[in-house]
């Protein structure tokens, strides 16, 4: 039962991603070709409101549902892994039009071949785990 709130939040996320058309392969092609403001507007709005929210949460030391302070983990200081990993991610994002969330949302949207993209993503994740120590980070 304690998981129901996460299922409901995920359901809302799936609806938002679909109705915003951020799950659209076409919209991603449009974004990377700079042919519409739509995706930049979505991401830009989210980042600006996100920054304000995080600032306020820290300033007022907001607490979560169980009364613990909301904490933000800093990302490790590194350069290569973010740039190289990010670039590899971007190659796949433009090709499949999907980042990890939309892959699953699109299954619900009735695109069965997204299952192949998901299998690929799981293989890619596994491959990273296997060769992790040989990569520059």
């Amino acid at each position: 039962m304690k998981f129901i709130k996460y299922i409901l939040t995920g359901t809302l996320f799936g609806i938002i991603m679909t109705k915003s058309e951020a799950v659209s392969w076409y919209r991603i092609q449009e974004m990377f070709r700079f042919q519409s403001f739509h995706m930049y507007g979505i991401i830009g709005t989210a980042i600006i409101l996100g920054m304000i929210s995080v600032y306020l949460i820290k300033k007022f030391k907001a607490k979560d549902i169980s009364g613990n302070p909301i904490v933000f983990q800093d990302k490790d200081r590194a350069f290569a892994k973010y740039l190289i990993g990010g670039t590899i991610f971007g190659l796949g994002w433009a090709l499949t039009g999907s980042c990890p969330g939309p892959m699953f949302v699109n299954l619900g949207n009735g695109y069965p071949a997204m299952a192949i993209v998901i299998i690929g993503a799981l293989l890619g994740t596994y491959l990273y785990g296997v060769i992790k120590n040989k990569l520059p980070h």
Binding site: A46, G86, S98, C99, M103, G120, T125, Y128
Partner: peptide, 25 residues
């Protein structure tokens, strides 16, 4: 195309430690 594209997304997101939600947002 779908399999390789997915592989790039999976590999790249773990390598960089996050995806659009974790990093961009």
């Amino acid at each position: 195309i779908l399999l390789i594209g997915g592989l790039l997304v999976g590999f790249g997101s773990r390598y960089s430690g996050g995806c659009t939600s974790g990093h961009a947002i």
